[in-house]
Simulated assay, not measured.
Amino acid sequence: MNLRLIFMSFAFACLMDAATSTQVVASTIVFDLEDQAQTGFNDGALTSLTLTRQGLSMTITRPGSPNQFDIYDVTDIGNPTFPASWGVRSISPWFSNDGTAFVANFSKPVQSVSIDMGDFGGDPDDLFIEAYSELDATGTLLDSVTSQLQGGGGDWTAATLRVSVATPSIRSIRFMGGTERFETPIGVFRVPNSVYYDNFAVVVPEPASLSLLGVGIASLSVFAIRRRQRRT
């Protein structure tokens, strides 16, 4: 077999693999809120927030009533154990701490989503995140994860919750963290949405077949150029 035939066979194989390959190359996009202006601790300045990175848009809302929230610098509270990974911006639900969960919609299907949820440890917080096949937390429930932040202290505690699926089909998520019953010397409080949210990490797969297609086309192009050069 001569070199020309080997070269053509390689290019053809790349093109065929590109047409049939199911392999993916994962790209992680992080929405960390650091470029957002602070609105306050409990001003209720926002009813919707859209962030765009690398061709993906994420829109956060709080369906129901009340539906407001804020962007807040939690380091203002002055906790000495506050981790640097949280930066100086996060989502605050403190305009209202009732049971109105957040929803995030994505402009295209994604494969996984993780969120950092944190609080200052005064009370135990129950956390959850759910992934859905359609916008606005509708359609099929694809995955769900729960966790808990331990209370009883004043230091910052946080957890990362992640939902994922085998193929990119998540169009929205629903998430919340807080406590249904927090007993104090002055009374019992219900604050089911009372933690802070940050570092939304979204995995968007890109078909590896695109790179194989590029290799195949490039190989054929090189072959065609060399063939014309030989004729002239």
Results as ranks from 00 to 15, higher is better:
52 T>Y: 08
103 V>A: 13
172 S>F: 00
143 D>M: 01
217 I>D: 04
10 F>E: 09
48 S>P: 05
196 Y>W: 13
106 F>L: 01
70 D>G: 09
126 D>Q: 12
45 A>T: 14
130 E>V: 05
144 S>P: 03
33 L>S: 08
67 N>W: 00
156 W>H: 09
170 I>P: 06
163 V>I: 00
96 S>Q: 10
188 V>L: 07
186 I>W: 02
139 G>E: 11
71 I>K: 10
48 S>T: 02
191 V>T: 15
64 G>K: 13
108 K>W: 01
129 I>E: 00
195 V>S: 15
201 A>W: 03
117 M>V: 08
20 T>K: 12
228 R>D: 08
120 F>L: 11
18 A>S: 15
120 F>C: 09
57 S>A: 15
206 E>F: 07
211 S>R: 14
145 V>T: 14
86 W>V: 00
21 S>I: 02
128 F>N: 07
30 V>E: 10
63 P>N: 06
16 M>A: 09
174 R>K: 07
161 L>Y: 02
141 L>M: 12
139 G>F: 02
76 D>N: 14
211 S>T: 08
19 A>R: 13
17 D>N: 12
176 M>L: 06
120 F>A: 08
122 G>P: 06
214 G>K: 08
102 F>N: 05
28 T>Y: 04
15 L>I: 10
176 M>Q: 15
1 M>G: 15
97 N>V: 05
229 Q>N: 12
229 Q>S: 13
152 G>H: 09
144 S>A: 05
8 M>L: 15
41 F>W: 14
168 P>C: 03
208 A>E: 03
121 G>T: 13
128 F>H: 11
205 P>A: 07
11 A>V: 00
63 P>M: 04
104 A>V: 03
183 E>T: 05
177 G>L: 04
73 D>T: 10
127 L>C: 08
111 Q>C: 01
147 S>M: 06
31 F>G: 06
69 F>Q: 10
21 S>D: 11
24 V>N: 07
25 V>H: 10
89 R>T: 05
109 P>V: 00
79 N>Q: 12
25 V>A: 12
62 R>W: 02
155 D>Q: 15
87 G>H: 12
178 G>Q: 02
184 T>E: 07
97 N>F: 02
137 A>Q: 04
156 W>D: 03
212 L>D: 04
132 Y>V: 08
206 E>Y: 09
89 R>G: 02
